[in-house]
Design a protein around this nucleic acid. Structure first.
Lengths: 380, 380
DNA sequence: ACACAACATGAATCCGGGA
DNA sequence: CTCCCGGATTCATGTTGTG
């Protein structure tokens, strides 16, 4: 059996080998110097699982104007107005998003964070490029800076956009891990997290080393939600390397891009000190989707729910007989646990594992309980 | 002194007379029939103090959606929400925003509400038109619809943009009223409010009269924050007339635009029943504060009880390891703080916050103590 | 009448692996 | 690419029905 390789098996093997070759060529755990668009151009197509980007948005906040490349705009010699500013920012945004899209795997995903100054432009452009928005997520700051002049609402949040490569693309979402992290309730699109301060905030000569260092808790949640262990995370605006530090801690690989020597230096030093969590800790709650599949027939074979026994719905409206092949009979109707449950209820679908029950020592249990027992027993 | 009128005084008097003439020509308390762009064209330049707009979101829904119990979700499938492309939606947006801008007074302001499907496009276009964003405000829904399939984060918020006519324009912001409404704390940019349901939700033949009726509390806060008594509020997408009802209650004037006869009819009936509040009552309306709820996972993200550390019950019968997603491991068994505590004790339920303990500086504390610390720290 | 259970529903881009 | 089909998936509120 092992000697025969079908065409399909060969294709799969070759794909995996090619993917491993691409991965081996990646500058994992490195910060690429220079402009992020140039730096990303050195990476192969479809090679990265996730992009997290915290792009600059300091272009038109009044007062001094800086171009996206950091050079200062001379208001006297440069004819500069708001329209030029937006056009320039849009161009910059389109450039780096295009390159990020190329570098991402087909089933990869993108996160961008921004404020009302830039996030609407970024969101519209990424939609135009074909990205498919999965959620916008609001980072609610538990300790925002107050509005000192009392002229507006306290700007107490920032916005993140999570997007896949397209409408039909698959993407990673660790639903159960998020639900666990949120005390058994679905994780919502509004996240309450403190801003980065205290020991976590990198200092240089007594001052903050970077003006917009993001909290590790934000990256922690985001990476835990949308990557797997071993995934490659790219951050085109690496700054102090929060993405790299948390990626390392969580056993994800990382690549950064950063223009400024100083930030590259402190980021590398910071990440060097970071320890990867033990593998046993990194395991997260598994969804049922990811659990090994058990056919109902296996429980019949096994004798846990023997052929000839009866199963019934919770209200005992229907009582069906189990046949040797794991199908059910109810009068003239037959079908799988799912199909018959669906037909009897006239429902669009039915999870037979939850619908049908059996008696075990006088106690009524859903047949899913038998499956859980079977799974536990077969783990050894 | 009264007999002499300076040039400045005369100019002011003439401006006031002209403004009064414009105001007298406005269709206050009326719903203009037809397309909102056409309807707004009938209004004079610079005549309105505030525009609130709840445009179609262009949801782009796929097929049907069923809840886990099999029931069908009544989605927004109305023709007015269907656009063939982003380009068409952008055109539509630009058209109505342009007309709204013309009708607004120079010191007037605009509010728009949307979701991630449309809000980025709306925000970018209004910036392009010269509007100056003052805040983006997040409406956090206290009772959003869950994500039934477990495929994304629960979409638990919508986004509002508040913008003036330009960077230098003055605008109305009732700072103290907002601070009072928020228990003497500055009002933040994230608002926790329930969705519209119960008695407030307009019904027709037992079904919701409008698929997207907004809660009055949202309009209440928004109008109280950014208009004065007597101001004129225009709503180009009037629907069931929530804007008109709340405007009337708060002593503001209103104008609506609505294409559908049915909506105009029920809106007028609704607003007819509305009573204007006595001014003394307005000052005493109280706020609703967010209930502080902390998930165990937040303490893990935050590092207070880090992944990899151990927790144990008071008698140290069981010692479990904290994993990255906030789940616990004990031998082969895993679960949330509540679930694992329940399983280990064989109890019907368990309050994990009281059951599990951790060491903090040599002292043994229930993990609830860490939660209290977290709450204290995030209150500042 | 009261307590409690059951049911209904909300701006939602809502499945995925294998043939 | 499509089709097939096993089977995973919900929170807060308000209303109606039942004991």
């Amino acid at each position: 059996m092992g000697a025969v390789e079908t065409t399909k098996m060969r294709q799969r093997r070759e794909t995996a080998v090619a993917a491993e070759k691409v991965r081996a060529s990646l500058p994992l755990g490195q910060i690429l110097a220079g402009d992020c668009v140039e730096a990303m151009r050195t990476l192969p197509d479809g090679s990265v699982d996730l992009v997290f980007a915290d792009p600059p948005y300091n272009l038109q906040l009044g007062g001094d104007l800086n171009r996206p490349d950091g050079s200062h705009v001379d208001a006297v010699t440069d004819h500069w107005d708001q329209f030029d500013s937006f056009a320039l920012y849009d161009r910059f945004t389109k450039d780096w998003l295009t390159e990020a899209r190329r570098v991402l795997k087909p089933d990869g995903a993108l996160w961008v964070i921004g404020s009302y100054h830039n996030i609407f432009r970024v969101g519209a452009i990424l939609q135009d490029l074909g990205f498919w928005i999965l959620n916008d997520v609001v980072w609610r700051k538990s300790n925002p800076m107050p509005n000192f002049k009392g002229t507006r609402f306290t700007n107490a949040h920032e916005t993140l956009i999570w997007a896949s490569q397209g409408e039909k693309a698959r993407y990673q979402f660790n639903y159960t891990a998020m639900k666990t992290l949120n005390d058994e309730l679905q994780m919502r699109s509004d996240w309450l997290l403190p801003i980065c301060g205290g020991q976590e905030r990198l200092k240089h000569d007594g001052h903050k080393a970077h003006p917009t260092q993001k909290p590790e808790s934000l990256l922690y949640r985001l990476l835990l939600a949308t990557t797997e262990k071993g995934d490659v995370v790219l951050d085109p605006f690496f700054g102090t390397g929060t993405t790299g530090a948390v990626a390392k801690r969580l056993g994800r690989e990382w690549i950064g891009c950063e223009r400024e020597d100083f930030y590259r230096d402190i980021a590398l030093e910071r990440i060097g000190k970071e320890l990867e969590l033990d593998e046993s800790v990194l395991a997260t709650m598994q969804s049922k989707k990811a659990a090994p599949r058990v056919a109902f027939g296996a429980l019949v074979e096994n004798g846990m729910i023997p052929a000839g026994s009866t199963v019934f719905d919770k209200k005992r409206r229907w009582q069906a007989t189990v046949r040797a092949d794991g199908s059910l009979v109810y009068g003239k109707q037959t079908g799988s646990i799912h199909g018959l449950g669906k037909d009897l209820q006239g429902a669009p679908s039915c999870n037979g594992w939850a619908f049908w029950h059996y008696e075990d020592g006088g106690e009524v249990k859903p047949i899913d309980a038998a499956r859980q027992l079977y799974l536990l027993a077969s783990e050894d």
